[in-house]
Design a protein around this nucleic acid. Structure first.
Length: 488
RNA sequence: GUUCCCUUCGUCUAGAGGCCUAGGACACGUCCCUUUCACGGAUGAGACACGGGUUCGACUCCCGUAGGGAACGCCA
């Protein structure tokens, strides 16, 4: 189906929301796959049965789709129906496959049943810490025969299975697409667990096996997995499988230079969706945290990113996620949006009982007048609230103060009178100055005593958005209604 | 502590030994536009962590130091 050997995967663990860091990892995988005409695989790392949930999986897949990412293999959004030739794609459905390989390792003496208890392990950890050494478990069961172990198992004991790391001081060196040559000494780890006592294999094992079995050619993943690569390399080697090429991406930080999390305001895609960010803006921005276009351009469509992506331009240092710049970028995209799209997207930010003039022309006009004062869809709500039909004005303290001025009632009377005489459905922008000047003359007030009451009567606010942009968007009948309510 | 990774304006980054008096973007300051705010335009301030090498020449290469991050789980 695909005419390329490039196969990449994004392998989320469905234990919560999709983090922007994860989203960026997914994006880079996607860009790389598309650029090379390869396959983008979605694999579900749900071996932690206690924490993995279907809701989380569904929401992650939704978020990924929302971002505009599509995968060639793996569970479909919503239905979770799987497609692809390398399934199943949920690791919890692959236990048999894993145990085939685990048993192979045990048979070859590359792995063993370990009956060390939690307490014994803790004691060893404590000792290692005291000695200033990395924790390398010392298991008395390391050289037991399988028969010996089976006996204990038959007695009801539940062992873990450990990989036997007998590589001494060997240096594992591999070429990382982001970091260049990386060398990890085998001695930095000991015999590590590959299957839990409850019979479920663990991450480092399943990840290594699946990458090989699913013929993954390139692994783009977060830097926190760099150390895990050693374990995975050992497993792949012991199983005589082929290792993918790795690319360890820098980590995204919050303003305090700590790993980005909910504490920083927003960290999940859902957060950004709810704050009114556009998926194109978010993916564009995220791509630029740790990567740059050779052209130096910053506003990049998905197509451009696919064309221009290159691993050489991936930055190896961790980077702070700057929400201010995201806002700016979102504003750029918002202004380029087409009107119908805008109304479709902003629907969920408006209250359902808000009524607006129906015509498409009104939508065009209102959006083009207001879009320059929005950064996110969320900003659209208070703006459009000023335009909703029904005469209700929600006055703040400053606006109430304006209403209490002595000269205000005169201004409003005149204003309303003029409006009532208007012949068209809407006031033209060109008419406004004339109208205001007439009020000025007839009511004999000027400056803020003139402008502010008119502002308040029109939009309920003493300050803010350009009144000349707003008044032509409000039907004259509505303006009259509003003025009327204030006059009381 | 041990191992690994990282280090250019406040932030994201450009920079592959002379093109660097270090470029761009966001944010910030000033000015213009505007009755206010925003948008837009112009302009300004602002960085090679430090110390040693290598070299005619180092932001770029090497070595240290300091600082930051990650891993050291029957989490991923």
């Amino acid at each position: 189906m695909k005419n390329s050997n490039v196969r990449v995967r994004f392998a989320p663990s469905p234990t919560g929301y999709l983090h922007v860091g994860g989203a960026r990892t997914a994006l880079y995988n996607y860009l790389f796959a598309k650029q090379h005409g390869g396959s983008f695989v979605l694999r579900v790392e749900d071996t932690d049965e206690a924490r993995s949930t279907t809701e989380s999986l569904v929401s992650m897949l939704d978020d990924l789709s929302w971002m505009g990412l599509k995968w060639d293999e793996g569970p479909a959004p919503k239905t979770l129906d799987e497609k692809g030739d390398f399934g199943p794609y949920r690791q919890s459905d692959r236990k048999e496959i894993y145990f085939k390989h685990i048993n192979e390792l045990i048979k070859d003496g590359r792995a063993y049943y370990c009956f060390l208890t939690e307490e014994e392990l803790d004691a060893q950890r404590e000792e290692a810490k005291k000695a200033g050494e990395p924790f390398r478990p010392n298991s008395p069961y390391r050289d037991w025969s399988v028969d010996q172990a089976k006996e204990k198992i038959d007695n009801g004991e539940k062992p873990t299975i450990r990989f036997k790391n007998d590589h001494g001081e060997k240096l594992y060196t591999f070429k990382d697409l982001v970091r260049g040559e990386v060398s990890l000494p085998a001695s930095m780890i000991g015999d590590f667990v590959i299957a839990r006592s409850n019979g479920m294999p663990v991450y480092n094992f399943v990840c290594a096996v699946d990458d090989a079995l699913m013929k993954i050619s390139h692994v783009f993943r977060a830097e926190e997995h760099l150390n895990n690569t050693l374990r995975q390399l050992m497993i792949i080697e012991a199983l005589k499988m082929e290792a993918p090429i790795y690319a360890h991406l820098s980590i995204m930080l919050g303003g305090d230079r700590q790993k980005l999390s909910k504490r920083h305001g927003a960290a999940s895609l859902t957060d950004f969706k709810e704050k009114g960010y556009l998926p194109q803006a978010l993916s564009n921005f995220i791509a630029l945290v740790g990567w740059s276009s050779p052209s130096g351009e910053e506003i990049l469509s998905m197509e451009q990113m696919i064309k221009e992506f290159s691993t050489e331009r991936l930055h190896s240092a961790s980077a702070v996620f700057d929400q201010e710049k995201l806002k700016w970028m979102n504003a750029q995209y918002l202004r380029e949006m087409n009107t119908e799209d805008f109304f479709k997207r902003s629907k969920e930010f408006f209250k359902s009982d808000w009524k607006f003039p129906e015509s498409g022309d009104w939508r065009e006009k209102s959006f083009s007048a207001l879009k320059s004062s929005m950064e996110t869809l969320d900003d659209a709500a208070p703006l459009y609230e000023m335009l909703k039909l029904g005469g209700e004005l929600d006055l703040n303290d400053q606006a109430k103060d304006v209403i209490s001025w002595e000269s205000t009632s005169k201004v409003l009377q005149v204003w309303k009178g003029l409006l009532s005489k208007a012949e068209s459905e809407y006031i033209n922008p060109e008419q406004i100055d004339g109208l205001i000047n007439t009020v000025k003359a007839e009511a004999e007030v000027k400056g803020k005593f003139l402008f502010m009451p008119i502002r308040v009567a029109s939009i309920g606010k003493a300050q803010g958005t350009e009144i000349k942009d707003l008044i032509p968007l409000i039907p004259v009948s509505e303006l009259v209604l509003r003025a009327d309510k204030l006059i009381g």
